[in-house]
Amino acid sequence: MDLASVFFWILSIPILVGAICVVFSKNPLFSALFLVLSMVGLGALYFQLGAHFISAVQIAVYAGAVMVLFVMVLMLFDRKAVESEEAAVIKNSQFKWLLVSVFLGLMLGLIFSQSFIAGPDTILPEATSVVSTKELGNLLYFKNILSFEILGLLLLVIAVGVVSLSRIEGGSDD
């Protein structure tokens, strides 16, 4: 086993534990915290995969901004509305579980039957695959500038939309 394998197996534990607990925690706040664990683990895995800048952005954007937003919104709600007894729901949905496991089985079978890399000897050397931030920036701003601008526009629309959505008055008609 090389170092990459060791990192992969160590990091996959928090990632998977986090992801499983997101789905099965009764309290949504714990779900959010486990999702943060999972995301930080993924960030470390990206670093291992040579995507250094992406790994830092993953931690800053997902763990540092998006999930903080989730936790804040959960705190704005009434505790009773948020903490629901959902264990029964999770148990009584055998059909959905069956569907999901069939999907997982089929896809896993596909991956391991038809290996995307012909054999272990064709794996690319590690050193070539560390992508520098400069390279990434050049790709982003020269080759994909249109997508980048469209994303900027999308963010503007979203910002305006979120403000107008959150200004809707509460209360029901009846």
């Binding site: 998977l16 999901v100 896809m107």
Partner: peptide
């Protein structure tokens, strides 16, 4: 020994958990 398939499998399991 980790190869691309392992990462794909991990990603797939995460995706399925999210779907579930």
């Amino acid at each position: 020994q980790v190869s691309l398939n392992h990462y794909l499998a991990l990603g797939l399991i995460l995706f399925t958990l999210g779907l579930a």
